[in-house]
Computed example of a mutant assay.
Amino acid sequence: MRWWLHPSWSPEPPNQRFAMFNSRIETVLTSRAFQGPVRHRRAIIPVSGFVEFKTQGKQKQPFYVQAASGEALAVAAMWECWQNQVWSTTMITQAASVSFAEVHDRMPLSLNAEQVARWMNPEEDVKNLLQELRGQSAELHWCPVDPRVNNARNKEGVVFI
Rank of each mutant, 00 (worst) to 15 (best):
P13A: 13
R39G: 13
T55C: 07
I45T: 04
S8D: 12
K54L: 06
W82V: 02
E52F: 00
S69I: 13
P7Y: 01
E52T: 03
A19G: 02
A77W: 01
A68T: 12
E26I: 04
V47F: 05
Q56Y: 03
E26F: 07
W3Y: 14
T55F: 02
A33Q: 07
E52Y: 00
A19S: 15
H6C: 00
A77R: 02
Q83F: 06
Q85F: 01
W4V: 03
R17I: 03
Q59G: 12
P62D: 10
A33K: 05
A74P: 06
S48C: 02
T55M: 08
L29I: 09
V86W: 11
F50E: 02
T27Y: 09
W87N: 12
E71G: 12
I44L: 12
V38H: 00
S8H: 15
A77I: 04
P7E: 03
E80F: 08
V47Q: 05
Q35A: 11
W3K: 13
K54G: 01
Q66C: 15
C81N: 14
N84P: 06
N15S: 15
W82A: 03
Q35S: 09
Q16V: 12
W9Q: 10
A74M: 15
A76P: 04
E80M: 05
R2S: 14
S31R: 14
K60M: 07
Q83T: 04
S48R: 13
F34I: 01
W87Q: 13
A76D: 05
W9L: 08
W79L: 04
A72N: 14
G57L: 04
M20H: 06
A72I: 09
R32Y: 07
W79N: 00
I25R: 01
M78I: 15
